[in-house]
Each structure stands twice: as structure tokens, then as C-alpha cells.
């Protein structure tokens, strides 16, 4: 038991060391220019030097991604509730919801910038658009696939539509919402960063995406890689955050024969 737990920690660290070792060795061996690929230590140094810029950028991007995700949760769940109430509405609007999923965000981001400006709210919007689909589809299926026995239980009491929705369908769909948000949170970070690419450094905006575009202009590769690593860490933080909330919520909603059978 002890050794397996130890291996769990040591093995990934070992992989990391080998990876950076090969990286460092390759740069020296092939004599690569630092614009093409800087050494790991250079990246670390650049990150340290720009730590405040990166931290501030991460915070801005985190806010954008978080608000985008929150908007997805609220708007997506509301749309799902409307969908669950009428088959006709569901059939009529579903193709356009699918459109949200299939439209390349890179293609419409410039349009959104045009309409809403080089601003924080545009970034939030991009993040929301890209992350809303999993919420809509998961919550809708959660709302319409309630356990038959529970449905009949409510019918036996002649419960009205609103009672069924509030006391049965919505609570039943909570695990599906958590599941949807887990998928969405990665997308929300991608959306925020893509949004920031397009906002660029024209506006008074300093997110991780704008930092990357700025460093690209300066050919400062080490600093760019540093920002990319910050993006990945940011995504991780948001994922851990959503998972934490999800676990707390799901502990109340644990499964049961009457629920999942």
C-alpha cells in the first residue's frame, strides 16, 4: 500500500524530469535559437520575472472563464427547463443549439468583437457560447428522463406541472448539471483565451490570451511558453474548483434504487 502511494507521486515527477531533461538536451544538442525553443530554465526564469503580470493575467482570465461558465450554467439550465416542458419547442430549437456546438468559435469571435467591443464582457460572452452546449444537452436529458416510478408517484398525487418540475424534475437533473459543468469548464477556459486573442492588446485588457499575443509580436518565446503553462494551470484550477463543488452537491444527491435503476 505504502509503496503504491509513493509510486503514484514519484512516477509523474519522474516523467516530468525526463521530459524537461530531453527538452534541455535537445536545445543544446541541436543548438536551437531561443526564439524557436528556449531552454526550460529560460522559461522558468521568464515566468519568475513576469510573475506579477502572469498572476494578474491569470486572475483576469479566471474571472472571464468563471463568469462564462456561470452564465452557461444559468442560461443553459434555463433553456433546458424550457426544452423539457415542450416536445415541440425542443424539436424546433434543438438544431440551433447544435449550431452553437458546431460553429467554430474562432470564426464568430471577430464578429462578437465588432458588436460588443474590445472588452471584458465580450470575452465572457465567447467563453459562455463555447461552454453552454454540454449544459443544455445534459440538463435537458436529465430533466426528461426522470425515473418512471417517481413520475407515477407524482401522478398518483395529482401533482401539477409546476410541482413536478420543482420537486421532481429539477432535483433529478442536478447530477446531470454537475456532469455538464465538468465538461464545460475546460471549454470555458478555452473560450476565454480565444476571446482574449481577438480582443488583443487594443483594449485596456490584460488576460493570459492578450499576453500571449503581445509576446508573439516580440518573438519572446520563453515568455509565451510561460503564459501557455499559466493557461494550463488556470484550466486545472477551474476544473478542481468545479469538481469540488460537484462532489459537495452530489454527496446530497447520492444514487439510490429509486433513482438509478
Amino acid at each position: 500500500m505504502m509503496t503504491s502511494r509513493l509510486v503514484r507521486w514519484i512516477a509523474p515527477v519522474l516523467v516530468f524530469l525526463i521530459f524537461t531533461g530531453v527538452w534541455d538536451f535537445s536545445v543544446r544538442w541541436f543548438d536551437l535559437h531561443k526564439v524557436i525553443l528556449p531552454k526550460p530554465m529560460d522559461v522558468l526564469y521568464a515566468m519568475f520575472q513576469e510573475r506579477w503580470i502572469l498572476l494578474r493575467g491569470s486572475w483576469v482570465t479566471f474571472q472571464a472563464a468563471f463568469l462564462g461558465l456561470l452564465a452557461s450554467a444559468v442560461i443553459g439550465s434555463s433553456i433546458a427547463i424550457v426544452f423539457s416542458q415542450s416536445r415541440v419547442v425542443r424539436i424546433s430549437f434543438y438544431p440551433y443549439v447544435l449550431f452553437l456546438q458546431t460553429v467554430p468559435i474562432v470564426a464568430i469571435a471577430p464578429l462578437l468583437i465588432l458588436w460588443f467591443g474590445n472588452e471584458f464582457k465580450t470575452v465572457v460572452l465567447v467563453s459562455c457560447i463555447i461552454s453552454i452546449f454540454p449544459v443544455i444537452s445534459n440538463v435537458t436529458s436529465g430533466l426528461i428522463s426522470v425515473n418512471e416510478n417517481l413520475r407515477d408517484l407524482f401522478r398518483m398525487q395529482s401533482a401539477n406541472r409546476l410541482q413536478v418540475l420543482l420537486k421532481l424534475s429539477i432535483p433529478s437533473a442536478v447530477p446531470q448539471l454537475v456532469l455538464g459543468l465538468r465538461i464545460s469548464c475546460g471549454l470555458a477556459v478555452i473560450g476565454a483565451i480565444v476571446g482574449e486573442f481577438f480582443v488583443g492588446d487594443r483594449g485596456a485588457y490584460e488576460g493570459l490570451g492578450t499576453i500571449i499575443t503581445a509576446r508573439q509580436g516580440n518573438l519572446n518565446t520563453a515568455s509565451m511558453i510561460g503564459a501557455v503553462i499559466a493557461c494550463a494551470l488556470l484550466g486545472l484550477v477551474l476544473l478542481v474548483f468545479v469538481n469540488l463543488i460537484g462532489t459537495i452537491v452530489l454527496r446530497r444527491w447520492t444514487k439510490d434504487v429509486g433513482f438509478e435503476s
Binding site: 408517484l153 401533482a159 439510490d256 434504487v257 429509486g258 433513482f259
Partner: peptide, 29 residues
């Protein structure tokens, strides 16, 4: 409204406590 049904699997709402589950029919009425 003087008829009740007991399902094969107990069909309790998993997010409610036992007491809240038993209170459900009164609540719905």
C-alpha cells in the same frame, strides 16, 4: 385521493430525507 401506490423499488426521492419523503404526498396536496 383515497388511493395510494407502493412501488416495487421503494421509489424514495434520493435527495430527500426519510421524513421529507414521507411528508411528500401531504406537501403535494
Amino acid at each position: 385521493d383515497w388511493m395510494s401506490f407502493v412501488f416495487q423499488e421503494s421509489a424514495l426521492l434520493p435527495w430527500r430525507t426519510v421524513r421529507e419523503n414521507v411528508a411528500l404526498p401531504i406537501e403535494l396536496r
